Amino acid sequence: MKFEDVINLKSNQITDPTYIKKCKETLERNGAIVIDNFITPQALEQIKLEGAAKKHLAFFTNQQHNIYISDADPSYPEDHIRNKRVISSKGCITDDQISAESVLRTLYDSDVFRSFLKVVLNEQALYSYDDECSSINLHYASEGQELGWHFDNSSFATTLMIQKPEAGGEFQYVRDVREADKGEMNFSDAERVLAGDITPNMLEIEPGALVLFRGRNAIHRVTPTIGDTTRMMVVLAYNNKPGVALSASARKTFYGK
């Protein structure tokens, strides 16, 4: 499939400066932007079919982690928010399992798409990961699987919703809980989020939507999937520096290889 047949260019004029400016302003204002019907129905169907055909290849994990996705800090008690454990469970197929002819690869490798992202995300350049696993990931969340509350280590995330579950699987977030670059962790508000004392925002994401999200200082989660329909979501991972690769131990942890 050609690039022109992947993105719904009539609705999403990603080379038009006015459209790009509007997207950038929305992301800067809200910390997130959901662009509905970003890919065409034909492209969405092809990705869904590839995802269904390759689900048996997915590496499934059920992990406990703290909200910072980091090692525990022994200077705090085990039940302190710095060390408190949450659960994430999902399946994933990796870049090396995405076919060379995949719609996802056409989109990910497109200079036009990458130029659009670069401006909206306010990045000087965007590069693929320098390993065989990380650039394109297709995630699966079956009944009961979820992503626990956490902060991202990267400054932005780029995702595509492919298939919604019957219920659950909601993307919830609370903005500006911490200021990571200044070392301001704001443990009290993070504790309140996990306790349910702060009502999170929710993104309404339909299949075919592109989502850009700044999760470094916004705590977020995906609630457990309900029903027999698997939630399928693609992560299109870029770096603002060349030559970045996950370590062998990280690849083993996240991808099982």
Results as ranks from 00 to 15, higher is better:
I69W: 15
E28I: 15
D111L: 12
D228E: 11
I198Y: 08
P200G: 02
V103F: 04
T229L: 09
D189R: 13
L236M: 08
K48R: 15
F60M: 09
F151V: 00
K54C: 05
A53F: 07
P41T: 05
L121K: 09
E25Y: 13
F116E: 06
S89E: 08
I20C: 05
D228P: 11
E25H: 14
L107E: 00
L160C: 10
I226W: 05
K48M: 12
T230R: 00
T225P: 07
G183M: 08
V222T: 04
K24F: 06
V120I: 02
R231F: 07
A218K: 01
A32R: 03
M233P: 04
G51M: 02
H65D: 07
L107K: 01
D152Q: 11
V120T: 02
A32Q: 07
F60P: 00
L9V: 10
I219F: 03
R105N: 05
F187D: 15
I219G: 00
A43D: 01
L104C: 09
D111P: 07
C92H: 06
A52E: 10
R29D: 15
R82G: 02
V193Y: 05
M202T: 15
I69V: 15
G168A: 03
N37F: 09
S89H: 05
L212P: 02
V86H: 05
D131E: 09
Y76R: 13
A237S: 14
L210V: 06
F3R: 01
L203K: 03
C92N: 12
I39W: 05
V112H: 05
H65F: 10
T223R: 03
D79A: 09
L203A: 04
E204R: 09
T159A: 04
C23G: 09
E78Y: 12
E50W: 04
R85S: 11
